[in-house]
Design a protein around this nucleic acid. Structure first.
Lengths: 221, 221
DNA sequence: CGCCGCCTGTCAGCCTCCCGTCAGCCGGGA
DNA sequence: TCCCGGCTGACGGGAGGCTGACAGGCGGCG
């Protein structure tokens, strides 16, 4: 699950990133409305957390443009405590839910899970890349129809790369996702993990881009 | 099975809780519509018992919002004796069944079981996995035809896993469904319970996926 | 009211196997 | 050719999971 977080206050943004990643999501932060609009249009996310009250293009503007462009992305908006008017406008503009600042991280995660569940009907729970299939409901992975056993960490790594199929992901980001950002693990641990995972998947699934990172190539479906 | 009960009258709420727990369900009570909406959206329940005529957001309002949000949760509504109009509106708003107050607890449980069975897609009230058979009406379990007795908790755990046969269920989720979300029980309690249950069932019924959770394998019908 | 049994959470000890580390190798680029 | 980034086999520590023992609690029964 990949979440786009639009928040200009660095402290809060960092908190949200940490909370989401602790809950097993992948968070990407952008700080202003223009960037949010661009990312939401050019990449695929599973949901968006949108602070109203942003520099450049404000949150409501982003939301309206998204809906006008028929982007069905679920959106959770963050509003100030006294932003009663904002909330109403936000819901009218197509937000799926709102949360009043300040809030507890648990609540953010709970509401996010709720709107993800609601929209879960649309997205297939199965991620595919060539001969590899990953079923998020049963947490099973198969290669050319044959089921294989992955450890918890291998599974998370594969799921993450499949969510970002076609993109090159830097090693540092992978480590962050696997262990939280406060990890002093060495890069070699990731390499060892990758070796073990590749052995189970077979060749050609996970590619190395020397100096850049790793990726699962887009098609070959 | 985890049931959300929405009832503002404490006496009745307590009665329902007791009846449901006696029948082997886990009941969580909320007293008003806003709370009901929030809980139903942020947690996962197997069904909801909803009193129409609540403070703040009324029962019908809750139901309409749930259905508008595409939440498929089975809902059983409670209405006053002369609430003919309410009943019709309730069914129109997406309730699965209704019950007229006052009612006998046995009837509530029976109807609940019926709508649970319907929505689970199980035509039969008997759940099977390999040599194990669980009859939800009589609450009996047998292995290769020989009846065994399970404690209340063991039964709940087995029933839940059988309902989600083929899926891997994380330990945290199992604890939620066994005790409700407000439990500070330790993971080890679950492990102890599993040991006792497995001893009665024999090997191969409940599998551990280290780091992922537990599951009853799908095939072996 | 007190005794007794069963259920279930906690604790401690054990076992399995995951995964981080290390050391050495490979291969591409200058 | 050397160097650097990435790969891989081996191994040991430790986390995750299992189980036997025990105790507190609750209901049943005399």
């Amino acid at each position: 699950m990949r979440i786009l977080v639009v928040e200009d206050e660095p402290r809060i943004a960092a908190d949200i990133r940490e909370g989401l990643e602790r809950a097993g999501y992948v968070a990407e932060i952008v700080a202003d409305g223009e960037a949010a609009w661009f990312r939401a249009e050019t990449e695929t996310y599973d949901a968006m957390v949108l602070d109203l009250g942003l520099p450049r293009l404000d949150g409501l503007g982003v939301l309206r443009r998204l809906r006008a462009a028929d982007v069905a992305l679920p959106v959770l908006i963050l509003t100030a405590r006294d932003g009663w008017r904002e909330r109403v406008e936000g819901i009218d503009a197509g937000a799926d839910d709102y949360l009043v600042k300040p809030f507890r991280m648990e609540e953010l995660v709970a509401r996010l899970r709720a709107i993800l569940r609601r929209t879960a009907g649309h997205a297939s729970p199965i991620l595919r890349a060539g001969p590899v299939e990953l079923d998020t409901r049963t947490r099973t992975v198969s290669v050319t129809g044959r089921e294989i056993d992955l450890t918890a960490l291998e599974y998370r790594l594969l799921a993450f790369l499949l969510h970002r199929q076609g993109q090159v992901v830097p090693a540092g980001e992978l480590l962050d996702h696997l262990h939280g950002s406060d990890s002093d693990r060495e890069a070699n641990a990731l390499e060892a993990l990758l070796t073990r995972l590749r052995r189970k998947l077979g060749p050609g699934i996970i590619e190395t881009r020397r100096g850049h990172g790793y990726c699962v190539p887009a098609e070959a479906s």
